[in-house]
Write a protein that binds this DNA or RNA. Structure first.
Lengths: 339, 339
DNA sequence: TTGTAGGCGTTATCAA
DNA sequence: TTGATAACGCCTACAA
């Protein structure tokens, strides 16, 4: 491996000139610059990461804390991880992936931060009272949170507005003439863990139904039979909101299939269905389903931008809850009150 | 942030003594060691990553090249990524995740290697003629491949023996008395890309059926209707081998459900089904399915071990194809010829 | 058992 | 516009 010294010698200039020619942090004559560039190419020079980090106190690396536990949805995990790494690479950053949970997650974060391995930390999969949040604050490291922890003083957060998403689902169903709405929520464990997107969605769903005087029932997607469970507590059910994983959506459709009701999804006299906040494609079900999907790319790139803003000396504390948008596939009657 | 200098001063020893006390690379008296440790705790000292990397030419970081394209299975991706990061952490290594595909994947790899950011590279999702393989060889960097590229001279590879897995599926079905076997393979795109596990499985399936004089038919899982397609080309179908994604497995079961055949899966006169090489749980289907699953933890930890062996000066070139093992859930009649 | 000191490859300050 | 040179923080021969 050739070093900056070799480049300097070959280009007939000093080391510092090479450094500046490459970083552009001070002006260099056109002629020297091209001599330096030629030498760089000839020697296939690449600045050494360790030396650069030591001298500049910038690593061009950020940590992504993406804890993986039994209830992690693979599709969501993958999509968000991809979005964050993509956004990071767009800004010439690499990503160190930390997959531990709970205490081990905190230990990993403190290790990479306090050894100076990373310039900042992105948090995925946050819960209401997330131990990583006070940790990041204590460490005083640039950071961004995908999700909405309770305690967000001084934190930068980004997420879809799941409350608004739930209200949007209810509103459209109501506009379409539905009056008895059942929610198939996440597995109970997610609420117990306090995953904020799930909690926010469910609460807003109930609030909106109450405010509109609609019948509402709620169940979780731990076991099959969600449709039957909802029907026992709410008669005349005419719409479903599915805030659950891909597989649970399939189970609901299977249940409807047994009675042939799946053929009437979206029909004037049939059931209406909408999926809340999926990170998978709601159009590939049979029948295709309307949805209010999250936007992982937006979440990821916003998180990275918020983070890098702090690295460059900016301030933190900004919460970006972006508006949900509706994706129509015809599973809500009357086109969701708009047709 | 306190440095090794602060620790040395506080402990009343020299810098090198602190270094040695912490690394254990030379003996230190019990008394000084404890004084050093006390100082480390008091100052919350953590060695600086950049400095350590620069001085030691070891980064304790490895790159995981896990290209994400449209056909990537989320569950498999997640499981393997987790396994690799877990194994790396067990060896005090961090993982830089590279998600780009094709040329961009190669560029990322050469960047992190030639800047000296990583000590080695793990490859996931390799295809037969994978451009990353010759690249790694040219770079002369420690590496390990999860999968089996054509050209593996000087490479360390690990994977389940998918050929043997396919033969095992056929053998058990044959032992159970099945004579007409249909394979639902991966989407065509995976074969076109040359993903080795898919190709190896399919070829071995066909070979084994031929050698045993069994009827065999093959289709892909691009579109629903796999069962019907197989039946048009093979009459009297009595067994299925499913080497495909989770969703495609569901579709096959749905198809059988329409005719009520799903109730006879595994029965003496019914259909037999086995899933080849899944990284998802085959027991959660209805009915639960027998399978010959991959072992992502084994693949990941073996890959990391092979890699770190090279970092410590060992040699490369070793191919570990571990034997498949059968997971029984009752979807093959006669218990797979063993009951 | 411990200390001294050179070097790792950059960046950035200070002169020129 | 350019060049010396002092950090950056740690590791590790070499000495004692």
């Amino acid at each position: 491996m050739s070093t900056i010294k070799d480049v300097a010698r070959r280009a007939g200039v000093s080391i510092s000139t090479v450094s500046y020619a490459l970083s552009g942090k001070r002006s260099v004559s056109e002629e020297t610059r091209s001599r330096v560039e030629a030498a760089v190419r000839a020697l296939r020079y690449r600045p050494n990461a360790g030396a650069r980090i030591l001298a500049s106190a910038r690593t061009q690396i950020l940590a992504l804390s993406a804890p993986m536990h039994d209830h992690t949805y693979p599709a969501a995990f993958m999509t968000f991880v991809r979005a964050v790494t993509q956004a990071a690479h767009d800004h010439d950053y690499d990503v160190v992936l930390l997959t531990e949970c709970d205490d081990a997650a905190c230990e990993s974060i403190s290790r990479v931060v306090s050894t100076g391995l990373v310039d900042g930390v992105v948090l995925m999969d946050v819960v209401g009272e997330d131990a990583r949040v006070p940790l990041l604050r204590a460490l005083g490291v640039p950071s961004a949170v995908i999700g909405l922890p309770e305690d967000r003083e001084g934190m930068s957060c980004v997420d879809m507005d799941f409350g608004r998403a739930a209200r949007m689902c209810v509103a459209r169903l109501a506009d379409a003439g539905c009056v008895q709405i059942g929610l198939v929520g996440q597995p109970q464990a997610l609420y117990d863990r306090g995953l904020t997107f799930a909690v926010r969605f469910r609460e807003a769903f109930q609030d909106e139904c109450r405010e509109r005087g609609l019948g509402a029932a709620v169940t979780t997607s731990d076991a099959p039979g969600a449709v039957a469970r909802l029907r026992t507590s709410l008669h005349g059910l005419d719409a479903f909101v599915l805030d659950c994983g891909e597989y649970a959506v399939e189970q609901v459709l299977d249940e409807l299939r047994e009675t042939g009701e799946h053929r009437l999804v979206g029909a004037a006299q049939g059931l209406s269905i909408v999926v809340g906040g999926p990170s998978f494609d709601p159009g590939r079900f049979d029948p295709p389903l309307d949805a209010v999907p999250v936007d992982p790319v937006r979440s990821g790139s916003t998180a990275v931008s918020l983070l890098l803003g702090q690295v460059d000396g900016g301030t933190a504390e900004s919460v970006e809850l972006y508006a949900p948008s509706w994706v129509r596939h015809g599973s809500v009657r009357n086109g969701g009150g708009l047709a």
